[in-house]
Amino acid sequence: MTGNDRPVLEVLAADGPLAVVDLAAAIDTHPVTVDHVCDRLYERDEVRLIGGQRYEITAAGRRRLADETPVATDPDVRPGTESRP
């Protein structure tokens, strides 16, 4: 995922739909940068333009977030050993 893609998708998933200027404020990024990110996400059908420079996340955007969500791991637990007595 490109640098600002995840924050934009996360904010839209939590608080959307939002205007570009509101997205920019939420992720502390310049509105022009967010506009470019939204254009790219729109081309991939991960956000939808709903008018007035407002975007909402699509099902494809939610899937992308879910597919790329980092898994938090406990450093004291080794894979494959959790259910052993």
Rank of each mutant, 00 (worst) to 15 (best):
V47T: 10
V71P: 02
D39P: 01
D74T: 00
H36Q: 04
G51Y: 06
E43M: 11
P70G: 12
A72V: 04
D67T: 02
E68Y: 05
R40C: 04
A60V: 11
P70N: 05
R63E: 15
E43C: 00
V71I: 14
T58N: 05
E68W: 05
D67G: 07
R40M: 05
I50T: 11
R64M: 04
I50K: 03
T73Y: 00
Y55H: 12
L41A: 12
I57K: 10
I50Y: 04
R62K: 13
I50A: 00
I57T: 13
T69A: 15
R48T: 12
R63H: 15
V71H: 07
A60I: 09
E68M: 08
I50C: 00
I57E: 07
D39V: 01
L65A: 00
D67N: 14
Y55F: 15
Y55S: 03
T58M: 13
P70H: 10
T69F: 08
D45Y: 08
L49G: 05
C38K: 01
Q53R: 10
D39K: 05
A66E: 14
V37R: 01
R62Y: 10
H36P: 01
A66N: 05
R54Y: 11
R48S: 14
D67H: 15
Y42I: 00
V71A: 09
R54W: 05
R63T: 07
T73K: 06
R48H: 11
R48A: 13
E68G: 13
R63Y: 15
H36M: 00
R48K: 13
E46P: 01
Y42G: 08
A66Y: 12
C38R: 02
R44T: 13
C38E: 02
R44P: 03
Y42H: 07
E43D: 13
R62H: 12
E46W: 14
R40V: 06
L41E: 07
Y55D: 00
R44C: 03
A66W: 14
L65C: 11
R40W: 08
V37H: 03
L65E: 06
C38W: 02
P70M: 08
Y42D: 15
V37F: 00
R44M: 10
R64C: 06
C38H: 06
A59V: 15
V71G: 03
R40N: 11
D74M: 02
T69N: 12
A72K: 12
V47F: 01
V37I: 07
E46Q: 13
R63V: 11
R62G: 04
Y42M: 02
R64K: 14
R62V: 12
R64A: 09
E68P: 06
A59F: 10
A60P: 04
R40F: 03
G51D: 09
R48P: 02
Y55W: 09
R44A: 13
E56F: 11
P70W: 01
I57W: 13
A59W: 14
R64H: 15
Y55N: 07
G52H: 10
D39E: 05
Y42C: 11
C38Y: 00
D39I: 02
I57D: 09
D45I: 04
R63S: 13
A60R: 15
A66G: 06
